[in-house]
Amino acid sequence: MKIDKNTINKIARLSRIKLDDKESEDYIKDLNSILDWVEQLNEVNTENVEPLSNISSSILPKREDVSNDTNSSEEILENAPDNLEGFFAVPKVVE
């Protein structure tokens, strides 16, 4: 079994998703069956094969260095669940 309780806790933590015990159990089962299933890729010989990240064959387009963005802070904060004094607000962080 590739995914155990520890692993699921670790990746849930990395993903910032809280799981209760029941959910952990379910995901352990799901993820293990999915990982077993994708295991078949090991049958494929990929020696000397370049990984493909993006299908596009064109070159990365670049923009000129012009600052012409006109969003106001009101617009940017409009959808924020909590904003104060022109800032996004989140629970206090102690570094």
Binding site: S67, N71, G86
Partner: peptide
């Protein structure tokens, strides 16, 4: 003048969240 992946300004010391693109 502008950011690495967006066209908002890099000017220092502006009022908060005033140089933020989508």
């Amino acid at each position: 003048n502008s950011k690495l992946f967006s066209s908002s300004s890099t000017k220092f010391g502006s009022s908060p969240n005033s140089q933020v693109s989508l």
